Simulated assay, not measured.
Amino acid sequence: MAQNQGGGGGFFSSLASSFSNFKNQVNGLLGYEGLEVINPEGGTEDAETEAQRGRWKQEDRDSYWKMMQKYVGADITSMVTLPVLIFEPMTMLQKMAELMEYSHLLELADECEDPYMRLVYTASWFISVYYALQRTWKPFNPILGETYEMVNHCGITFIAEQVSHHPPMSAAHAENEHFVYDITSKVKTKFLGNSLDVYPLGRTRLKLKKDGVILELVPPPTKVNNLIFGRTWVDSPGEMVLTNLTTGDKVVLYFQPCGWFGAGRYEVDGYVYNASEEPKILMTGKWNKSMSYQPCDLEGEPLPGTELKEVWRVAEAPANDKFQYTHFAHKVNSFDTAPKKLLASDSRLRPDRYALEKGDLSKAGSEKIWRRNKELRRGPERQKVRNSVRDGLK
């Protein structure tokens, strides 16, 4: 993807009629990058039309940009208060639970005797969540001690908690008769003006119970494009590596970066390797649609007499959903998946989240600000107490 250095160049010349004032502001920034002239849907709209699309009003965008200029190049994980109009009525803890939608793939992996097909199933399961991650609405940040629990889905018990306020960090555990899943979610961000790079720093591990194999995931980074100007969209260019720590086998999949006018967007390609790093199975597909596999030779070419077989396909989603939710996302957000004795700290009970779900942006915004200010006052003290308790349990 092409990027303009110093804030000048073709992007601003193509948008001069609409953003002349904005251009003068940006030209003064040193080392600015991140404004892509691109149509990620692969359409034929001109750059000016594409750049003006989005959910922000013009005056809101200009005002917010003036406020955000000072953060260019910084990690803004927990230092910026964002307007509620760009949020979805779900917290990050709930969004972590969306990975459970296609948990039947882990049942197949657990019962599979072929160690390489086991990796095909588990890698496809990890890829499946990217369809949900492409939503451009921002989830609410959990406060310290906030929790989320989900039951009544494939025998899974899922629980997540916000375990650190600054830096923000979440931990989650999921389990049923086939697997145990644990994740510590921590990210580092880099704000580039109209885009945001997100680097995962946490740890993700999966245990399949039948054979006791343990797998560890290293996901690719994520880039959120057109945060303020244009239609917001998400890309995850880079490598995803899933390693069987028990045997040394692994999957290496490459997420293609989105090129000009959407070229290569969503595409994922790679191989399952044995412990000697010899390719055994090729995998290919699109992370927003489906994944397929085919046995291959040592050169990575499909074996004669074999065919490409589909292993996962995204489920049909509701049409014209306001927040681009899947059917499963609505389940995650509902009390149908809540345990009978729901903790008072559960994300579903957040007043700001609930108000946004009901369409009351004014109340959602005021509740969000109140909760943030309260957390800023109490966060360090609460974190100190929690650390002392944990130290005492060691």
Rank of each mutant, 00 (worst) to 15 (best):
V80H: 10
L99F: 08
P279E: 02
S63E: 14
L215S: 07
V26I: 15
V120S: 07
K368M: 15
E59S: 15
R372T: 04
E216F: 06
L108N: 11
L298S: 13
T306E: 01
S63K: 14
L343H: 11
V84I: 12
V224F: 07
T81M: 12
G193F: 03
E277V: 11
G42K: 14
F158K: 03
N226Q: 15
E161N: 04
T147D: 04
S20F: 09
G259V: 06
P40K: 01
W137H: 12
N333W: 00
G230W: 08
Q383V: 05
G6E: 13
K341M: 09
V129H: 01
R231I: 11
E161A: 04
Y148C: 14
N24F: 06
K286N: 10
K309M: 05
G264K: 10
K322Q: 11
N333T: 04
P295K: 10
F140K: 07
M150D: 06
I369P: 02
C258W: 02
R353T: 12
L215D: 03
N288L: 04
M283W: 05
Q134D: 13
T243I: 11
W260F: 14
I86K: 07
Y325F: 14
D211T: 11
S292P: 00
T247K: 10
G202P: 07
G264F: 06
Q25R: 11
P115W: 01
E367K: 04
R353F: 00
G305M: 14
E367P: 02
R378L: 13
F191D: 04
D297E: 02
E98V: 07
T77N: 08
N244D: 15
A51D: 01
A97N: 07
E175P: 04
G285W: 05
G392I: 11
V129I: 06
H173M: 11
V314T: 02
L15F: 00
L282Q: 01
V385Q: 08
P200W: 01
A172W: 01
R231F: 15
M96S: 09
F11Y: 12
T243D: 09
M68L: 15
F87T: 00
D211G: 05
S290I: 07
P339D: 12
N288P: 02
F140W: 01
R371Y: 08
A123C: 06
S185Q: 13
S388F: 05
Q383Y: 09
G365C: 10
E50C: 00
N4G: 13
A174Y: 00
I281G: 05
E161G: 02
P40N: 11
P318V: 09
L376T: 13
P351Y: 10
L82G: 01
W260Q: 15
S17D: 14
P168V: 08
A171G: 05
T284N: 08
T337M: 15
G8I: 05
V151T: 14
L30Q: 12
F12E: 13
T204M: 09
V268K: 06
R372W: 12
G73D: 03
D75C: 06
G230T: 10
